[in-house]
Design a protein around this nucleic acid. Structure first.
Lengths: 255, 255
DNA sequence: CGCGACGTTGAGTTCGGTCAATCAGCGTGG
DNA sequence: CCACGCTGATTGACCGAACTCAACGTCGCG
């Protein structure tokens, strides 16, 4: 029923922000068959160890990737915003090693692996763009390890908010700014490897430092410079290092 | 000077353990140009933010991938054993987001990106194998986040040793076994987000529990079942879920 | 209006960190 | 051969960040 309301433009934008594609390749992405569906909050729409034949693209809402320990503690390892392909890697690894969970009401587009493979096979630059997309997600994941492993609670939360501000394209370096970030304190705890109670105390401290406020699923960044410093944040890891224009083709030119 | 002594067989083995390749594709991998070199211990042979035109394959020794915080604390995010392509992702993301550091004397083979691209372009199944390799490394990284984020010190170290035992193919489920793991306690601390002092105490506890002994760069696992339980370890995430035989080709068959 | 989910706060505990001393091994140079 | 210095392992005493437990507040909703 949502078939006509949602298209693959956000996904294409994400891809082209990381890789250069020709007009024909862009059109091939937009022509991919996709089945839209709404998912209610707090639903695991991809379960651990299940094998899928399609990839999920987030169009609206917020999705968390997580795994859990034997005693049920959850660790969120990644967040997926609109435009992100939450499990593009499933094209080459169909069995899910981590679950996908909606944090809010979310609209996802399901694209069959067969169609993605076909586009990648016919357009080597698209295959490379898919590969690069997975590689950049891995770089983000790597930063997540650093955050959880080496920063104290205040630094972790500051870093998370910085990353989200950049990924939501909300940053106004010269002034305060706001953006929606629909998560509970318990979910932030699951991202950072901390308890909800401690997240609460950290948010209170950040508020008292006049760095940021988080309330009602909305972040108010009051001091971007100070926040970046508190989270030791630099944004480079979020982008491809080659501008999409200079990006090389996987297929070497024929000699 | 080492050109003739080392070849790409370990790398090919790693690839074929995760993806199926035809004889021609295998040969193409083995025919890749590679420049061997020895690197002394504790050398950063790929620096942060440097752009490379080649990928590094570990043939002997042990390599750690790491990033660091502003105050110089290191977080090791991955280990690369012989056969691993430590930065295959650099083919599509040439600027290094994390550094590579030798933990022991290490022999690496440097393979030009141009050659890897050429093989991938001529053999779509190789392109897919490269992509899958990066995806499985990301799954290992994801487990690393869970380990650091959600387990206590004892569980983290137990999990690490379990992962290494499996990756070194040292496991003998029915009996005690040994394997070389040439790292210092300080380096284990950098992997787990803990201090060297605490690693020492945890190793002492694991020794007193008769789970494992680590001394002189050698691990002695005394109780595999108990160790797996302590680290909540399951090995699935280390492998491709499709056996290499069933692995699909990126190129769809022509209709 | 009452319930449930989420947020807030306090008191006490604990895991892991910090600081510091000691020890063992090992390569080097006198 | 042995003294020296360096690196890494070990241990103790103390500290502090984050956890646990528990109570209470707040808000949205049926």
């Amino acid at each position: 029923m949502f078939q006509r309301q949602f298209n693959l433009h956000p996904f294409l934008e994400r891809l082209t922000s990381r890789s250069r594609l020709s007009e024909g390749e862009k059109q091939a992405i937009l022509d991919l068959p996709a089945h839209a569906s709404q998912v209610a909050p707090n639903i695991d729409f991809v379960r651990l160890d299940h094998t899928t034949d399609h990839a999920c693209i987030v169009v609206q809402g917020l999705v968390g990737r997580f795994e859990q320990t034997f005693d049920g503690n959850r660790q969120i390892t990644a967040l997926h915003l609109p435009g992100d392909a939450a499990d593009l890697h499933s094209v080459v690894q169909p069995k899910a090693r981590s679950a996908l969970h909606t944090l809010t009401t979310t609209t996802i587009l399901r694209v069959p692996h067969a169609a993605l493979r076909s586009v990648a096979a016919n357009h080597p630059a698209v295959a490379e763009a898919f590969w690069r997309d997975c590689v950049i997600d891995a770089a983000i994941l790597s930063q997540w390890v650093v955050n959880v492993g080496r920063r104290d609670a205040r630094g972790r939360v500051a870093h998370l908010v910085c990353e989200m501000a950049v990924r939501y394209k909300a940053v106004r370096p010269e002034q305060e700014f706001f953006f929606d970030f629909p998560v509970t304190q318990a979910q932030i705890g699951d991202m950072m490897g901390l308890t909800p109670v401690h997240i609460n105390r950290v948010l209170k401290a950040l508020r008292e430092e006049e760095l940021l406020t988080l309330s009602k699923s909305r972040v108010h960044v009051m001091n971007w410079t100070g926040l970046k410093y508190a989270g030791e944040f630099t944004a480079e890891y979020l982008q491809a290092d080659t501008g999409p224009e200079e990006s090389l083709r996987l297929v070497a030119p024929h000699r």
